[in-house]
Amino acid sequence: MIVLDLALNAVATGIVLGSIYALLALGLAITFGILHIPNVAHPAIVIAGAYAVVVLNRFGLDPILAGLLWSIPFYFIGLAFYEFYARSFESRGGGNTLQSLTLFFGISLVIEIALVVAYGTDLRSVRVGYVGESLRLGTVAIPYRFLVPALITPVVVFLLWLYLSKTNTGLAIRAVAHDERAVSVAGVNPTAIKRHAFGIATALAVIAGAALVITGPVDPFAGRIHIGRVFAIVVLAGMGTIPGTLAAAIIIGVAESLVMSFASPSWAPGVAFAILLATLALRPTGLFGGVR
């Protein structure tokens, strides 16, 4: 029975963990999954968002509310980021993946250093009433500091899915990655569409930052451990499917949690890639690639 309890707890924790991973990966599902921009700076932007949330939380603002407020300036920061990227690479006919990768790696370092300079390397956290308590269902216990941010994800996933599949701008975002010329023949400015999508992805990063900082304290380098995992989730999901991103993240979350409980926590970071490799061998388009 102890084993069963352990397994139940591991699965419950995994679902919650996966849900938070999905939130971290959603921005990347747009930039990398749909626009094919290898934005390795995404986790660093998430951490910058977490710091921004900490600042507002000092004034007593709820972190989720703070994240929502920050998402508007972050959207505009994202527009500026994309404009910089487009001018330095895409408009010059480059768009070379390796060069872009280097650029975003650089941006990620700059963000981290800027956070160190501004706030030092100490851990920062938010104050919320529910930290330290857990929801108990029989033998399963889920800390609220995980449960609350995990509950944001389904809402965000639903709204994002609705936007990308039911609005014309959402359709244009998916179309622009597919065929930029066909989009411009239709009178849509492809650069403006991609800039807007990048802005949304950056706004999502601050929501993810708010969720992450509720789960535990962050330091300027806290994004690094997530880089590999979020890319694995986006590819596993099948590049740019939004509900697929949530499903893939939960699969990885549960697998990691089971490995942590029954094997060793030191194996956990490898789980995402093990699942990814096994999946790509069988389904090169990812789990939900081609399906909407």
Partner: peptide
């Protein structure tokens, strides 16, 4: 406007959705 030699429909979308992309502006 122009059409292209090799048709590249926006996959993952229905026929009507392919036509709705341009109309947003």
């Amino acid at each position: 406007s122009r059409s292209f030699q090799i048709p590249h429909p926006f996959t993952g979308m229905t026929v009507i959705e392919n036509l709705l992309v341009p109309m947003d502006y």
